[in-house]
Design a protein around this nucleic acid. Sequence first.
DNA 1: TATTGTTATACTCTATAACTATA
DNA 2: TATAGTTATAGAGTATAACAATA
Lengths: 149, 149
Amino acid sequence: MPKSASSVEKVDTSYLESLLGYNARRAALAVIEVFLQRMAQYDLRPVDFSVLSLVTHNPGITSRQLCTTLGILPPNLVGMINALEKRELIERRPHPRDGRAMGIHLTPSGEKLMRDAERTAAELEAEVASRLTAAEGRILIRLLKKVYL
Amino acid sequence: MPKSASSVEKVDTSYLESLLGYNARRAALAVIEVFLQRMAQYDLRPVDFSVLSLVTHNPGITSRQLCTTLGILPPNLVGMINALEKRELIERRPHPRDGRAMGIHLTPSGEKLMRDAERTAAELEAEVASRLTAAEGRILIRLLKKVYL
DNA sequence: TATTGTTATACTCTATAACTATA
DNA sequence: TATAGTTATAGAGTATAACAATA
């Protein structure tokens, strides 16, 4: 067959699928896609959920702490925090010991939203994890942590 | 302690770390970060490597097949293909049976680059996977595939 | 009528520099 | 001098609509 006449019937992805990074990215995108759909009812993107979840479990957390924990650059967090404050889901209070910083807290409606959103997240996790056994799910998370921690 | 005076000593991330999506995303980002550093010597981003790797193992693959396989939208692939062609790493040849399509092939210098780049990728994989045992690495990839396939 | 490849374009995400107020 | 928060802005990544050529 001449060089110019070759074509591909079925794409061979076996090499890419042997790479950890490729598989981790594909799995992350698959989970995030479901996440996006289910969280749309709360008008929360994954990053909004992560921020609100950290505020939920760390009342008084500062912007700086959110940035460090989630790997967000400070200029990019400002807009998110402003939007969440405008929606009256969070409020900023003066930090007790650092006049430069503001402690971030959930409002009552923020608390209600996050109770619902975290319940939805739990359902979503259970659903995605249903493709695995309970033991496999625990192993998977443990191994992922070994990779990035 | 009054409401306004609370603050966070150490951020509690245990809830987020219980979520599969959060862990998969963090692991993917960690691997991709190393990938970016090591592939910089070839001036290849992860997506360029993925494209060239598919062309390597599927000579004559079309743009449409690349898009479908990698989840890239056609308008966003055009620039990448043009850039790789300008660097003389790939070339477009007429498709043998479809006058609309072009088959994509590696040039000799593209073949040389990919031999080196895939060797580097293998070293990188071994290094990231060194945080896990060989068995754990195989299990991790198997479980990740169960999540997204 | 549907598909491949393409252009133009808009939107989101991420990154850098520089400023202010406070430590 | 260093840090928390902010503004402005640039760049990369991702999205939709519409078109020409071919099936």
